[in-house]
Structures are given as C-alpha cells and as structure tokens.
C-alpha cells in the first residue's frame, strides 16, 4: 500500500512557487515550505486519500504563513531581490507585459489578493477549490482576485482593452511618429 507521503515530493516546486508569491522573499519561502513539509508529514493521517494533495499542501502552507504573520510583528516588510530579480526579462514587444515589471507590481498587492490571483490565475485551481483552500466564500476569492487585477492594471497602467500595440490606427500613428522622432 502506497504511503501518500511519497507524493509530497512531487509538489515541492508548486509549494515553493506559492510560498514565494506569499512571502516575496526566497529565504522565508524556503522556511515556509519546510514547515509545510514537516506538518504534512506528521499530519498525513488527516489527508483524505483520493483528494487533491496539492490543495491540501497549499492549505497547510497558507495557514502556516498567516499564523506566522499574526504572530510576528514585522518591523519592516523586507522584499529581497529573490523574486523580481530572478525574473528580469527583456521587455516584450508582442503586447506582453515585461515580467520584471509585472512581478514588481504584483509584490505591491496585499497578501490575500496575491494569494487569490496565484491560486485561480496561475495554478489552475477553480474559484471553488481556492475558496475551500482559503476557508472563505467563493465570492470572497472572486472579489480578492478582481481587486488584485484592478490594482495591477492601475500599477501597470493598463487600461482595459488597450494594448500598446494594437489599439486603433490613430494611436498606432502616434506611436509610430514617436518612434520615428
């Protein structure tokens, strides 16, 4: 009979990515993942076989993060370069956002909004799964994700529907003129 703990190792990358999005700090993220591993290991009897282990591990990780956050009165919220720095990338010219800009803006969002966006926007959880994971209502997750998106759009100066490259011809004309000047 398989020990479900054998599966934990397959989720380490996802756990670390989620931890990084919460802590915004590589060292804290690693600590958080290690705490999560230990808790998952010793509480494996609480894992229901056949359910989504990644969701279970993410739940442990986020609960650990928020309980630490409550306990610790952080003097300064250190944001090291472990996140945005590693992701520095050339600005794209295909209408995509430069990842480094995006990552920097993302770090400005409140924890709950980053979490909601990572869960539903990036890691492929449904709103229902994310809500279960966060122990809140589906509407709460949706509203956090939407507020996060609005804030990112503000920070990145994205007006809805407007992309740098393919707006109307008038705008394109201005852009071309500027480029030529």
């Amino acid at each position: 009979m398989d020990d479900p703990r054998e599966e934990i190792v397959t989720h380490l990358r996802a756990l670390r990515a989620f931890a990084l999005s919460l802590t915004r700090n590589a060292a804290s993220a690693d600590d958080l993942v290690q705490d999560t591993i230990v808790k998952a290991w010793s509480n494996i009897d609480k894992f229901q076989a056949g359910t989504n282990m990644r969701a279970w591990l993410f739940t442990i990780l986020r609960n650990t993060y928020y309980s630490l956050r409550r306990k610790r009165v952080r003097e300064v919220q250190d944001v090291d370069d472990g996140y945005a720095g590693q992701l520095a990338e050339k600005p794209a010219h295909d209408g995509r956002l430069a990842l480094s800009d995006f990552a920097a803006a993302f770090e400005h969002l409140p924890d709950e909004q980053r979490e909601a966006l990572i869960l539903v926007g990036a890691s492929g959880f449904s709103y229902e799964e994310a809500a279960a994971l966060c122990g809140c209502a589906v509407g709460t997750v949706k509203s956090r994700a939407n507020r996060g998106r609005r804030r990112l759009a503000e920070l990145l100066d994205l007006d809805d529907g407007e992309t740098p490259e393919m707006t109307d011809t008038a705008t394109l004309g201005v852009v071309t003129e500027r480029a030529a000047a």
Binding site: A17, L20, G95, R96, L97, L99, L117, A122, A153, L158
Partner: peptide
Amino acid sequence: KPSADQRIDESLKRVYDAQL
C-alpha cells in the same frame, strides 16, 4: 482585444511557470 485581465492572467502564469 486582450483585456487587461487577460494580460494580467497571462503574466501571472508566466511568473508562476518560471518559478515552477
């Protein structure tokens, strides 16, 4: 056109995938 939301989600995925 791709909405701001679509572009944001696409970037989110790229950041997350890079981490993965």
